[in-house]
Design a protein around this nucleic acid. Sequence first.
DNA 1: TATTGTTATACTCTATAACTATA
DNA 2: TATAGTTATAGAGTATAACAATA
Lengths: 166, 166
Amino acid sequence: MLGDETLRRRSVTSPGPVDDAVLRQFAGYHIKRAHNVIRSDLRKRLEPLGLRISTYSCLVLIAENPDVRQSELAQALDIERPNMVTILDEMEQFGWIRRARLATDRRAYALTVTALGKRLCAKAVSLDQQHENCLLAGLTDKDKKDLIRMLNIIEDGLETQQDDRK
Amino acid sequence: MLGDETLRRRSVTSPGPVDDAVLRQFAGYHIKRAHNVIRSDLRKRLEPLGLRISTYSCLVLIAENPDVRQSELAQALDIERPNMVTILDEMEQFGWIRRARLATDRRAYALTVTALGKRLCAKAVSLDQQHENCLLAGLTDKDKKDLIRMLNIIEDGLETQQDDRK
DNA sequence: TATTGTTATACTCTATAACTATA
DNA sequence: TATAGTTATAGAGTATAACAATA
C-alpha cells in the first residue's frame, strides 16, 4: 500500500482531512492518541492544586504506603531514581511529604505524607475521579472492566518480552 | 481511604511490593502504564532505522498524503507547528522528504516522500507490524476491535468536552 | 562489592511569543 | 488583518555516568 505509486495527490483547493489509515490499523496508535488527551485533561485538572501528574502519583503512593523508600517508589512508577530526587525535593519543599532516615538502613529514606499532604491528596484523588468519569462517559461498566483487563495483558506481555531479551 | 489513619506502616525488614490500589481503580492509570511500555518497545524497534516515533509518524502520513501541508500534518498528529519544523528539517536533511512551495499559496509547503523515504517507510511499517503483533499477543481479534473502539470513544469524548469548555 | 540517594548532564518532547513572507 | 512557516526559548520528562555514605 505504501509503495503504491497510484496514490492520489491531495487537492490543492480543498485538502480535506489527513488520512491516517496506515497508522490507525495499529492499536498502539490509538493508545497513544487516547493517552495524549487523557494526560492533557488530567494535567489541567491538577494544575490549580499545584500538582503535576508525577507529583500527584507520588503523593498517592506515599499516602497509601507509609515509610516507602524512594527506590521502591521509583520502581513502582517506572521513574529513574535521579529524576525521583527532583520530584520529592519539590514535594518536600511544599511541605507535602517528609524524608526520615531509616534506623535499620541509614542509606535509605522512609517517605511519609504530612497532614497538609493528606488533605491535598484527598482533593487530588477527587479531581482524578471527576476526570475518570468524563473519560468513561461513553463506556459501560463492562467496557471499563474489559479495557483495564486488556491494558494489563498488553503491559505484562510487553514487559515479559523485554525481560526475555535481556 | 486516603484519610484513614489506621493505614499500616510498611515492614522495614520486608517491604514487599508498593500498593497502587487507589490509582489502579482509574482506567487512565492503566492507559498510561500500557502506553509507557508500548512507546519504549516501538522506540527500540525503530532506532536501528534512525527513526524516532515522531519522524516515523510523519513519514507514514506524508507517504499516505502526498502534498500535505506542514500545518495539516501538525494538526493531524497534534504536534505544535514550531516543533514540526524541527522534525521535518531532520527528515529533509536525511533525504527522506522534500518541501516544495505551493504555486497556489506561496506561504505553504507541499510535503512529499522521496524514493529513499518510501523504502524506509516500508521497513518501518513492517517493524511497527511486528511491534503490534507482540503487543496483541495475549488478545483475541475481537479484543483488539473492542479496544480500539473504546479508545476512540475516550479520545473523541474528551476532545469534545475540551472544545465545549472553550 | 553492592546499594541508596545524589549530582551533573544531556537529549527529547512540549509549549508559547514573536518574527517574515505571503494571502 | 490573517495565515504558513520559522526562530528563539523555556519547561517538562527521560536517561546515563559517577560520586558519597552506608550495607
